[in-house]
Design a protein around this nucleic acid. Structure first.
Lengths: 343, 343
DNA sequence: GTTAGCACTCAAAATATTGGAGTGCTAACA
DNA sequence: TGTTAGCACTCCAATATTTTGAGTGCTAAC
């Protein structure tokens, strides 16, 4: 059977109506609001076809129809096509002005949740692949060094290094240690710091224990697991606004996912791994999402890039009957706002 | 009427039973489990008295009794008295070994939530009153300085200072700026950095613009509002385990409080402001808590101190029928564990 | 002072009743 | 051949009704 123009109109009407009301849509409603001037009986015939083709389904025999995942998918694809140019327009790059990256991301995710009324998640760029710009240590007391690492994108990490006290340090020695560290390690990412590198470093110094302790601290600080603390969320409670997500007692699981963030990491990592050729905005409907708990949800993700290869993801999580049009639009807007924030 | 020994036993039995089951307790149950060897009829008489005295109440005419806030209060006070010595035992001080304070607090709050099965909140020590240990700036590029501030308790804060480029800097000049800053500002808290101080500082340097920018950054970083990002929470979803908190649709509000953390700040601030003479562990039952949304909850808070005046609070939030005994115990244990973590 | 006994209460669970939106099918119509 | 009116049928959801049982208060006897 073919999906002719009329069927498309009916399907779209069903979906739009269902997005608004959340109630199954009956033939009479379509008859009135589709603008097709057909009787409910005719619509019923068409709906029967659409159901057979898998675009809509009946919750029970004597109810109206609701969109199936396939139906949503059709609708969203259509939407993406018409919005394509708009999306391409905002595919701007965000440059290196990430002084207050953390603050910005927090604000971003909050705005996103408030504007959409869905739950929002934003990841900061992964620092595992990010490169060290410079390293600086300074003496706190006889057994303690303060370690400061600046990464590309001006992301700063600090740690305190505990020394065993076997090697005496003073201002000048610390200075030379700093020079050595920068000479050997700047420009590298954590992944580049191998055993070989370390050996090479140790060959050039008398303060072997100190250097060992410092390098181990560096690895410690930078080698955090993906998703450890780099994920910001907001508006998790928005899911209470959508009964289909909370009844059946799934609210607890969903909220819990937002609290622990582990699962969100998987979600968002998937989005990031999308190959280069893909669209910068992705929509996952129901089971298309990689997460179990989220079969009743849709997820829209957009990836951003801060120039120099630092990538992150913005995501919106809501019910399947999400206002896709609005979400796509807002994601675009926020991308450009983020852009401005870093001017 | 007097609260004689027998009434106390009955009241305690009612409360303990209710804590376990969450169901109203009837006279027959008491008759069987109180160990008093009294018939249910006698118990009924006593219960009638207890109700008149306000310690228990009936949800409806033909139901058993549940403890009133006054009843809980009596029970908790009794508990606090018997546990007093134990609580005093763990009133240990935590010294300055707060290298990974943030990590520790996060772990702490997670443990707390998991062990109690209630929601948990922990605040880090306020840095507004914390004193600067030393300050270090370094040149990132011609328009940017990296600012590192170490506070008492080895808490490190960083920021990037944007310069207008009007004053040229080099390694040696930055060095002298660092010396000047430390000379003038170390030992002070943000609250101590007044206009007068700034003037005094400016009088001693040629790099007035740079110093202004730096000091303004320092104040920016340290002068965060109470509760801004210093509050760690965990186990908010535990409230789903207690129907009395989720039915009536309050779940959303409670979870929301945990998400925004604003209200938690108030809660915890209240606990911290308890005068010196007070107990280190406080229990708020129902309306005793300063928060609106929490009239169905009880809150147990304990304050800790990291020596040198750095104070914070640990809190557990659960239903009124919380296992107070266990919570009090766990709070004590965690205090001492925290102690060990900083050995 | 304590207790057995009894009538009474009332929420919650189980069951029955009803209403109405929606469907599929058939037969008539343009 | 596509469209439509009409009708019998389905079934959820809301409402009403009944049943159940735990619990109470009161009274009279021990």
């Amino acid at each position: 059977m073919e999906l002719d123009q009329r069927k498309v109109v009916i399907l779209t009407t069903i979906i739009k109506n269902y997005l608004e009301t959340g109630e199954p849509v009956g033939s009479r409603t379509i008859s009135k609001y589709s603008g097709l001037n057909l009787s409910s009986a005719t619509i019923r015939n068409e709906m029967s076809d659409l159901e057979e083709m898998g675009y809509i389904l009946q919750p029970h025999t004597s109810a109206g129809r609701i969109p199936s995942d396939k139906g949503y998918r059709f609708y969203v694809d259509q939407l993406m096509e018409t919005h394509q140019h708009e999306i391409d327009d905002v595919k701007t790059e965000m440059f290196e002005k990430v002084d207050r990256l953390e603050t910005t991301l927090k604000t971003l995710v909050k705005n996103l949740a408030q504007n959409t009324n869905y739950a929002a998640v934003v990841t900061g760029p992964s620092i595992r692949t990010n490169k060290i710009k410079f390293i600086q240590t300074s003496l706190v007391d006889s057994k303690r060094l303060l370690l400061v690492i600046m990464m590309q994108g001006n992301i700063v990490k600090t740690a305190t290094v505990l020394l065993d006290g076997s090697e005496e340090l003073d201002f000048n020695r610390v200075l030379s240690i700093n020079m050595l560290l920068n000479d050997e390690l700047s420009g590298l990412s954590v992944e580049d710091i191998t055993e070989g590198r370390l050996a090479q470093l140790l060959a050039r110094t008398n303060h072997k224990e100190t250097i060992k302790a410092i390098v181990s601290s560096i690895v410690d600080v930078l080698d955090i697991k993906f998703g450890d603390s780099q994920i910001y969320t907001s508006g998790a409670t928005n899911i209470f606004k959508y009964p289909e997500l909370t009844e059946s007692g799934n609210a607890s699981k969903l909220i819990s996912a937002f609290e622990t963030k582990d699962e969100l990491a998987a979600l968002v990592k998937g989005a990031e791994e999308q190959g280069e050729g893909k669209r910068p905005i992705q929509v996952y409907i129901g089971n298309e999402s990689p997460l179990q708990n989220m079969t009743d949800c849709s997820v829209v993700t957009a990836s951003y890039e801060l120039g120099n290869g630092l990538k992150g993801t913005i995501g919106v999580i809501g019910p399947k009957r999400m206002d896709y049009e609005k979400v796509l639009e807002i994601l675009s807007k926020l991308q450009s706002e983020m852009d401005q924030a870093f001017q």
